[in-house]
Write a protein that binds this DNA or RNA. Structure first.
Lengths: 224, 224
DNA sequence: TAGATTGTTAATCGATTAACAATC
DNA sequence: TAGATTGTTAATCGATTAACAATC
């Protein structure tokens, strides 16, 4: 609560990774770790680890290092994992189904409370004990339950209109799998994007770039 | 081919987004665009757009701007989308199935050529005309077909051993959905990670942080 | 030609790394 | 106490933004 101000996105992006590594150390019954050792394991500098952590408070002890358990707990707390925000899934296609069944929402701060789809054939089917609801009931559901987050797993074409409906209903947080930039149209909204197409294209670039580099290295005269 | 050297990851990450926006402009039959107008649409600075593009060559024209079609083509070329690298999917669980069916691989530079799973019940089933193959045949398949990329959609526990098998087979590029940092164990490997858990936790942080800020704003005295 | 807009250099800003005094 | 390792300040590095001459 104390510091916590204007933490850069770069730092925030590293938090889940710290959390994961600390969890793994816990599993291995390692109780104590220095920034130096964590640095070796994670392949980032010890300086960065200490800087990152000190954004949020003082968690270590000079001459000793960090308690793995305590630090893991702290980061979980910083991330807000215990909040159990209510989330609704929109779209029960391949991706929506997979995310719904695959993710351990409870371990990451959320509860999946409803799944919506407009396909009459899907309505009534169950995913993980949750019955698929008709998208037409979105408004009445939101009015009653005020979900914290909407997970968008709908085709791009459907996204803008759907986002507007959700926004009007008061949903201000989104986990967005659709290829539509929500945040361009609504500025008081929190959007975490998972752009799978972008990720795949970046991989394509990196492979292509690497290949070109290998070719140019071959033809290049040796440098001592 | 000319410049292309040591492009920062930040620039590369923006390329697919440029590509997407330019594609949308094409759909709207917009043929010409200035960095200023693109800047307005994408909510990034015109300076950054021009800097980014000039990493790869000279695509614009003073006083005119950029040809949407030509620029779209150029970025597609930079990304290497026409290469059609062969990719194999490992893991035909919920996520593997969804990715296999959901993605337009061909539009992003890849061809999905095989799907592997170790579950006897799944072997022989078809996803998108591709028959699920027994993971035991991974080595013989790689020996014969030399896939460019492996897509890892297996549980974390199975990942390190699987990665080693693939690496030994000569697979050096990965689209990694598993919660395992491949790149820590193999350093001559290209890995593009999709860490869904991390993404969800970042969302959790941002919601929590935003909530706290709202609370502190309420109790704060008004500032003119 | 005048206006527009690029490509590119220079200035600013922010993030990472190094260094070290504080302290367990 | 001596050794280890943090928290934190200062130095470096890189990325973003601003400015403007070049030019279509």
């Amino acid at each position: 609560m104390s510091k916590h101000e204007n933490i850069s996105v770069q730092v925030i992006k590293r938090l889940p990774r710290y959390y994961r590594f600390l969890g793994e150390l816990l599993d291995k019954n390692i109780t104590r770790i220095s920034s130096r050792e964590l640095s070796d394991r994670m392949h980032i500098t010890a300086s960065q680890i200490r800087q990152d952590l000190n954004c949020f408070g003082v968690f270590g002890q000079q001459g000793y290092g960090y308690s793995v358990y305590a630090l893991h707990e702290e980061i979980g707390h910083i991330l807000g994992i215990s909040h159990q925000y209510s989330a609704i899934m929109i779209g029960a296609g391949n991706l929506g189904r997979a995310i719904s069944t695959h993710m351990s929402f409870e371990k990451r701060g959320f509860r999946l409370t409803a799944i919506f789809d407009s396909d009459k054939n899907k309505i009534g089917q169950k995913i993980r004990d949750i019955e698929i609801t008709d998208s037409a009931e979105l408004e009445s559901f939101c009015h009653e339950c005020h979900p914290d987050v909407a997970i968008l797993c709908v085709p791009k074409a459907a996204s803008p209109a759907l986002a507007r409906r959700l926004y009007v209903c008061g949903v201000k947080n989104y986990w967005n799998f659709s290829h539509y930039d929500l945040s361009l149209d609504f500025d008081d909204v929190i959007v975490e994007n998972v752009h799978l197409n972008d990720s795949l294209m970046i991989l394509c670039y990196r492979i292509t770039d690497n290949k070109e580099k290998c070719i140019s290295k071959e033809s290049e005269p040796e440098v001592s």
